[in-house]
Amino acid sequence: MLSVNHLSKTYAAGDKALDDVTFTIPSGQVVGLIGPSGAGKSTLIRCINRLVEPTSGSIQLGDTTITGLSTSELRAVRRRIGMIFQEYALVERLTVMENVLSGRLGYVSFWRSFFRKFPAEDVQKAFALLARVGLTDHANKRADALSGGQRQRVGIARALEQDPQLLLIDEPTASLDPKTSRQVMRLLLEMCNERGLPAIINIHDVVLARQFTERIIGLQAGKIVFDGPPSELDESVLTRIYGEEDWKTLEHDSEAA
């Protein structure tokens, strides 16, 4: 379970990216985070594993308070949180397998990781995950030799290799075509459901968000302006989040999809 209390973030430049954000995610729930560009979605996600240092407020994962941990404690909690990025963020010049195994870095000693001698269970898990995302044959390829959809699946495998208790997913489909986007979203959902894994998916595509998540949080200028099931996400709510626009066409898309 994740709970975020009164979280605020002001960047050094003075941008108030998050303003008193509070919500709770019970285990197994997949939440879609939507909002216009610059609303603070990425900032929120990055505050949770403290890639971005929050200015005030607290974050709790299970019974660990993430805000205020020392560096070594922070490492221990980061390995419990898997993260998936928009630009895949694979280490391009490492092999696919090394990228997946890097999910175990928080668990193994430096020398083990340096010589790529990971424990047998870790290697087996990595192979199993690669099989699950359909990339068994690509294990020894370099990450930059893969297509976008394949890279994102490696990113998913890396995050799950961590055995996470929470997934943070920042625009997983923004760099992918519509078909691959749906495949990747479906895969993510299946993975979360198989493991009862809670997740925050930060997503631009309202149609995808509606289709794949069970709860939606709308962010606007750093504040939560909507928090409810996708069915309540009507025209007036969309206008509140994104501003005036002809939302009818969107409804249409959604039915077509």
Binding site: L51, V77, I81, E92, S102, L105, G106, S113
Partner: peptide, 23 residues
């Protein structure tokens, strides 16, 4: 972003160097 991704797995400083920067 590649370095951040390695950091996010809970890697130590030396591991971030080895997996995120050196390659």
């Amino acid at each position: 972003i590649q370095i951040e991704a390695v950091t996010a797995t809970g890697a130590s400083g030396a591991q971030i160097l080895n997996y995120g920067i050196v390659p």
